[in-house]
C-alpha cells in the first residue's frame, strides 16, 4: 500500500506549486472578506479536492489496471486513496494555518495572543475534520461515475454532509433541543469520531463499488 500512496504523492507533487499559488490568492481574497478562520477551513477543503485530481492522473495512464497486477488488492487501492486524502487535508490546513496567520497579521485581521493562537489551532482542527468529511464523500462518487463526472459531482460531496447537518439540526429543533454552547462543544469533541464513522462508511461504499468493477482501462 505504501507504493500506492507514494505514487499519488509523486503525481500530485508536480501540482504543488500551482496549489500553493491558489492558496496564496485565496489568502488575499478570503482573509480580507471572511477572516482567517474561514480561510483555514477553505484551505483544507481546497486541498481535499486534489484527491479527485489523483483519479484523473490514474485514468490517464490506466494505473488501476497496473496496480492490480502488483501484490495489492482492490481494498488496498481504496484504503490508500483515503490515506492520501487525509494527507492532503492535513497539508492543506497546515499550509492554510501558516498562510492564514501570516496574512491575518499582515492585514491586521489578527492580533498575536495566546487566545488567537488557540483559536487558530482549533480552527485548523475543525478544518481538518470538515475537509476529510467533504473529501471522503468524493471518493465513492469518483469510483461510481469516473474522475471526469466525479469532478462535476464534487458539489454533491459538499451538499450531502451539509444537508445531513441541516436535517439533524431541524430534528433537534423539532424535539425542542436548544443549541447551547455546551452542546456545540460536545459536538465538536465528538467530531473526530463522527468523521471516522463517516470515512468508514464512505470507504465501505467505495470498496463495494470498486469490487464490482472490471478494470480494463
Amino acid at each position: 500500500m505504501k507504493s500506492l500512496i507514494l505514487k499519488d504523492l509523486y503525481n500530485i507533487g508536480h501540482n504543488a506549486k500551482s496549489m500553493l499559488l491558489i492558496l496564496l490568492v485565496f489568502a488575499v481574497g478570503l482573509i480580507m472578506s471572511s477572516g482567517v478562520e474561514s480561510y483555514i477551513i477553505s484551505a483544507g477543503v481546497l486541498c481535499s479536492m486534489m484527491i479527485v485530481t489523483t483519479f484523473t492522473f490514474d485514468d490517464n495512464c490506466k494505473w488501476s489496471k497496473y496496480a492490480l497486477i502488483m501484490p495489492v488488492c482492490k481494498k488496498d487501492i481504496v484504503k490508500a486513496k483515503f490515506i492520501v486524502l487525509v494527507i492532503f487535508c492535513t497539508v492543506g490546513v497546515c499550509v492554510g494555518t501558516i498562510f492564514g496567520v501570516s496574512g491575518g497579521l499582515v492585514m491586521r485581521k489578527l492580533v498575536m495572543s495566546m487566545e488567537s493562537i488557540v483559536t487558530m489551532l482549533f480552527m485548523a482542527f475543525v478544518g481538518l475534520i470538515v475537509s476529510v468529511i467533504f473529501g471522503s464523500m468524493s471518493i465513492p462518487l469518483v469510483y461510481k461515475f469516473g474522475a471526469e463526472k466525479g469532478r462535476m459531482l464534487l458539489l454533491v460531496s459538499f451538499v450531502v454532509p451539509l444537508a445531513i447537518c441541516f436535517i439533524v439540526y431541524e430534528i433537534l429543533m423539532l424535539f425542542g433541543v436548544e443549541i447551547t454552547d455546551q452542546l456545540v462543544f460536545a459536538i465538536l469533541c465528538a467530531s473526530p469520531l463522527i468523521a471516522l464513522i463517516w470515512v468508514y462508511i464512505m470507504y465501505r461504499i467505495s470498496c463495494s463499488i470498486f469490487s464490482k468493477q472490471e478494470v480494463i482501462g
Binding site: S3, L4, L6, K7, Y10, N11, N60, C61, W63, P71
Partner: peptide, 17 residues
C-alpha cells in the same frame, strides 16, 4: 505510470510494492 514521473520515482514506487 503518469507522464510527470521519472524512472527514479517509478523505481521507488515499485520498490515499495
Amino acid at each position: 505510470f503518469y507522464e510527470t514521473l521519472t524512472p527514479e520515482k517509478v523505481g521507488k514506487i515499485c520498490a515499495a510494492a
